[in-house]
Design a protein around this nucleic acid. Structure first.
Length: 625
DNA sequence: GAGTTTGAAACT
DNA sequence: CAGTTTCAAACTC
């Protein structure tokens, strides 16, 4: 089934739509079940929060035919279902243990929870093989998801399930606009008009085109970091993507739909462990229909809604659930206002933007002592992409860009190229911000169309360390000899490789020029380090002496105690002088200049000693008085 | 700080 | 794919 239109699909970063982890599986019930997987598309109830905003997807219904007996692979409970109106082993997302747990809940519970979750307009109706989803946004219009009568997916953890029992399966139903699927036609009178605008957001978010419900094991995970207030932000981390997605939602007062009746901690959906952090896998819509979880320990549910320009990622937990209290906030929680006012919006936000925002109008709520607010947010805001850890991507603050003509929407702009919003930059006419999210998304799409790898790191990381790092495309230098920062290889401190097309390259292992440069660079670095260490040591020694000599000073007269010039002080002083001599030598200064520099350094040392001693004496005298 | 050089990105 | 232009960073003075 074509869930996401090609146009939309192409609009989205590859990482989002990556389907590598999803495999098509024959529609069969005969495949052995896997105890470790979690029932997903089949006979499960999904409760999904949305903006205004809870999606409460009623469980996929048991088949309308024979009663079935199913065993919950998670809890071991057996649920008998019969008839069309019985819910077969419904599930619910829960945030137990700060993870989304796909949980079975009793039918009644699920129904009740769904009712509770549904704001007045969010009526959950189960209807045959369809799902009536509560409203997204404010319009109160439902979204319908169809559950086929059969279609239990092998591999979707039909654990312990009667192989012959039909297992309903979530089907993706495209709603709104151009992708309305005929499956809706059978929705009966419970299905109302599906208006695209119901999912509009403040930021020109176009009508939702599709709602995909599916799950996959072994797929990529999105991490949704719920935020505390309304409107709020949920950070969504997408491994493999350097973009960080933040979902801006307006919280509602809806009660917790789908609250887990029995949180199952054995089947966490996500791999993250942060408090209240939730993870759901990213599944390409087109393949959701036949999703078979890979041997991951979970088979999480995924519900995504996509739009022509913005991705709508349904929250995996009802908002009330994900609203953390102020004393137990997860690291990375950000309290913010959605740009544009009260409207609900979903915006693709670079990972670093949360941090960036934090420095401006956003308020950090993270208060855990073990996660300092700023650092924790930053850490979480950074995406580990393509094997690059967050720490690696955050080791250096990005320099502000100076773009003037690109609007910071082309790869010329380092901020944009690195998936960041411009912040504190010197750019002109910048569109690389939330206010121009539409343009920005288009630009991203354009870049990805041109080069699907555009936002991936250029420097691949070898499996066995830095020695294997190399530029993914190679450089094309002609005049710099690849020994200046114009060269991307040199800039990344890696040598050129066979894929480089450079001319006159000197950036190779045996290159004497490169060795000289490296030597000089290393020497400079060592010099700085030694100098710093020496000064630190001297300072430390002086301070130490001050402490130890105070009694002597107090008993002495006007002269400074000789004990100031101790062995340690002498050593530190000598180190400073030696360092000065080395520096003069390396910079090939004339001897006269070298001597002068050394003497000056000695003078500085003496001044420090005298100053410290005098201060100690003064302090001591004042104490004695 | 202004001007130049450079090479990646973008365009044709 | 190749040649050209545009662009912003790196570099020089």
């Amino acid at each position: 089934m074509d869930v996401v239109s090609p146009e939309l699909n192409s609009l989205l970063p590859d990482e989002i739509m990556d389907t590598e982890a999803i495999e098509e599986v024959p529609h069969s019930q005969s495949e052995p079940t896997h105890d470790t997987s979690v029932p997903m598309e089949t006979d499960s109830s999904i409760t999904i929060s949305a903006s205004s905003t809870l999606f409460a997807i009623k469980p996929a219904l048991a088949t309308s035919t024979a009663a079935t007996k199913t065993t919950d692979s998670l809890t071991g409970t057996t649920v008998s279902t019969s008839g069309t109106q019985k819910l077969a082993t419904p599930f619910a997302f829960s945030a137990a243990n700060h993870q989304i747990i796909l949980n079975k809940v009793a039918s009644a519970q699920a129904t009740e929870a769904a009712k509770a979750a549904a704001a007045p307009a969010q009526v959950i109706k189960q209807e045959g093989q369809k799902l009536l989803v509560t409203t997204i946004g404010k319009s109160g219009q439902p979204i319908v998801l169809q559950l086929p009568h059969t279609g239990g997916k092998p591999g979707v953890s039909q654990t312990s399930r009667d192989a012959k029992s039909p297992t309903p399966q979530f089907k993706v139903v495209t709603i709104g606009g151009r992708e309305l699927k005929p499956v809706l036609s059978s929705a009966g009178n419970q299905v109302t008009t599906l208006q695209a605008q119901q999912l509009k957001t403040v930021q020109n978010i176009k009508p939702v085109q599709s709602v995909a419900v599916g799950g996959v094991g072994g797929s990529q995970f999105k991490t949704i970091i719920p935020l505390a207030t309304q409107p709020n932000v949920q950070q969504i981390q997408v491994p493999g993507s350097r973009f960080h997605y933040v979902r801006l939602v307006t919280a509602t007062t809806a009660s917790a739909a789908g609250q887990p009746s029995a949180p199952n901690t054995s089947k966490p959906l996500g791999v993250n462990t942060g408090a209240v952090r939730m993870s759901v896998p990213v599944v390409q819509a087109q393949t959701m229909k036949q999703v078979a979880p890979k041997p991951l320990t979970s088979a999480p549910q995924v519900v995504t809604t996509t739009q022509t320009q913005q991705r709508l990622i349904m929250p995996a937990t009802p908002l009330p659930q994900i609203q953390p209290n102020f004393t137990n906030l997860p690291p990375g929680t950000v309290l913010t206002s959605a740009p544009g006012g009260s409207n609900v919006g979903y915006a693709v936000v670079p990972a670093q933007y949360v941090t960036q925002l934090q420095q401006s109008q956003f308020v950090t709520l993270a208060s855990s002592s073990s996660f300092p607010a700023s650092s924790s947010v930053q850490t979480q805001a950074k995406l580990p992409y393509n094997g690059v850890s967050a720490a690696e991507t955050t080791s250096r603050p990005r320099k502000p860009c100076n773009c003037t003509k690109s609007q910071c929407l082309k790869l010329y702009c380092d901020c944009f190229a690195n998936g960041e919003f411009c912040n504190n930059c010197n750019c002109n006419n910048c569109f690389n911000n939330l206010e121009h999210e539409t343009e920005r998304l288009k630009a991203i799409k354009t870049c990805l169309d041109r080069n699907p790898e555009a936002f991936k790191p250029k420097i691949g990381k070898g499996k066995e360390g830095e020695s294997d790092r190399r530029h993914s495309k190679g450089c094309n230098c002609k005049r710099s000899g690849c020994l200046k920062n114009y060269c991307e290889c040199y800039e990344a401190k890696i040598m050129c490789s066979s894929i480089c097309k450079c001319i006159g390259c000197k950036n190779f292992e045996e290159s004497p020029e490169r060795k000289t440069l490296m030597h000089l660079a290393d020497a400079a670095e060592v010099r700085v380090q030694q100098q710093t260490a020496a000064k630190t040591k001297l300072s430390s020694q002086i301070s130490d002496l001050l402490m130890r000599t105070t009694p002597i000073i107090s008993s002495g007269g006007g002269r400074l105690p000789y004990t100031f010039v101790t062995k340690e002080v002498l050593e530190a002083t000598c180190e400073c002088l030696l360092e000065q001599a080395k520096r003069a030598e390396q910079t090939r200064q004339p001897q006269v200049e070298a001597e002068r520099a050394i003497l000056e350094e000695f003078g500085h040392c003496l001044m420090s000693i005298i100053s410290s001693a005098g201060k100690a004496k003064t302090d001591c005298a004042s104490i004695n008085c």
